[in-house]
Write a protein that binds this DNA or RNA. Structure first.
Lengths: 248, 248
DNA sequence: GCTCGGCGTTCCGATGAACGGAATCCACAA
DNA sequence: TTGTGGATTCCGTTCATCGGAACGCCGAGC
């Protein structure tokens, strides 16, 4: 996990990295073990982190990520910064459709969900704000991959492509064709490639320089869906957000 | 700012702390200056943080908070954790009223906004997700203060109470009376105490143990508002969220 | 009641990561 | 051309950091 945590900074970061969605709170021993550092060291560093507010300590003595860290992290331009300008448009999308709305950016060879509005009656989706996912399956992923630098595309296609359902595309050539189509059409459709009952339609969001910096999508029930009718509304939202990002 | 940054950890945290909403990107020199550390040191630490993803470096060489940090910070139980369970209820509130919806928690003697839904046509409010505010002025603040430990209340009342408008309560005795009323009524009203044209109605959210862990509010135009009619819907949302937090 | 094992905390002396000053390099402006 | 501010690298010193060990605490098992 923590690779070799030589420098102090690396140790501290390894400690933060130890927290996962599956275990958002950790005892000191768990923390030390996962970060790959000795217990006294973990104790010292954790104490400092708690004093500052990067970690918090519950009544039971377990550690968790602190609100203070969340505060400074909220300054990430690609995190809340993006979210803030996008939110009104996502709201509109949700209000019109009452389906799941998702906003994601690419981080390396995966995507990270920056925002998600889950309708109470919409299809359940297994994504989480702050969570990661592969690029080749979801609608947002296909958009982000289609507009990524060629080097990134090659790397992503070279890696093993996990099949989430029988419909997940894992043949490289077919994927290449789909990506070309995504670039041509200006939107992507993922039909049952993550879960069989869900279909998503995604469109690219462009930054000031015209590069694709994020993607929005609507996720609906696969059987009731008509992708063609959803594409325009998703694209409109994406264009609206792009306009806010490119002043003038 | 960085007090005395003796330990490496303190330095790293001081560097993160250097970023503010007003300046979300910094040059290396600015970063070093704000963190109160030497330039070579800042350079070394920044390089490590960039390598891990806690910071990112733009094409212009300026540093910004990285998406990776945002990811782990999203695991903060009082940040996104709370937000996730609250979101559907906030959505409902927004859809019914189309006014500003806010969700906040107390952090020390201030409050931190965890979520905010800003209607495009609602009163402009000067708050920001991840931003801080004083406890004694806003609706959410009054709720959080009213249910805070006595020691915290005393500390908060002992500090100078800033007046944001002519209507801001700054007399301690009157504030005490208001807090008692908030506890009795189960909701708080802040009428023109932050900006003269805004009025907010807030209600407490309780955790598994029954303690107040957060507060929701609706912020509406002061002149068109009827607090009494808003209280029930806000309270209902707060109860709904509380129920999700206290399983069983 | 006693013991054992896991966990958290504190203390110690040895060690090496981190430090700041100085030198270098670069881009831009005068 | 020179000058200025920022970024980067180098080097020898030093002090913060390190892990082992010892200790206190609690709950489970005998």
């Amino acid at each position: 996990m923590g690779a070799d945590a030589r420098s102090v900074t690396a140790k501290v970061l390894a400690m933060l990295e130890a927290f996962t969605p599956a275990s958002p709170t950790l005892s000191l021993s768990e923390l030390a073990r996962r970060a790959g550092i000795s217990l006294p060291t973990a104790h010292r560093r954790a104490a400092e982190l708690v004093a500052w507010g990067a970690l918090e300590r519950g009544a039971d003595g377990r550690y968790r990520i602190g609100l203070r860290l969340w505060e400074v992290a909220s300054l990430a331009p690609r995190g809340l910064g993006l979210r803030d300008v996008a939110m009104p448009f996502l709201e509109d999308l949700y209000e019109v459709t009452h389906e799941n709305v998702q906003l994601a950016v690419r981080e390396g060879l995966e995507l990270v969900f920056v925002e998600r509005i889950a309708g109470r009656h919409a299809v359940p989706v297994l994504t989480r704000v702050g969570g990661r996912f592969a690029l080749h399956a979801t609608g947002v992923g296909l958009v982000l991959l289609a507009h990524a630098p060629v080097a990134v595309q090659e790397q992503a296609l070279a890696a093993p492509l996990q099949a989430y359902t029988a419909k997940t595309m894992t043949e490289r050539d077919r994927l290449r064709a789909v990506l070309a189509a995504v670039r041509k059409n200006g939107y992507a459709v993922s039909d049952g490639q993550v879960t069989l009952d869900a279909l998503s339609v995604a469109a690219p969001i462009r930054g000031a320089g015209g590069e694709v910096v994020a993607a929005v999508s609507l996720v609906v029930r696969a059987d009731t869906a008509e992708p063609i009718t959803l594409a325009p509304v998703v694209q409109a939202a994406a264009r609206g957000i792009s306009r806010m990002l490119a002043p003038g």
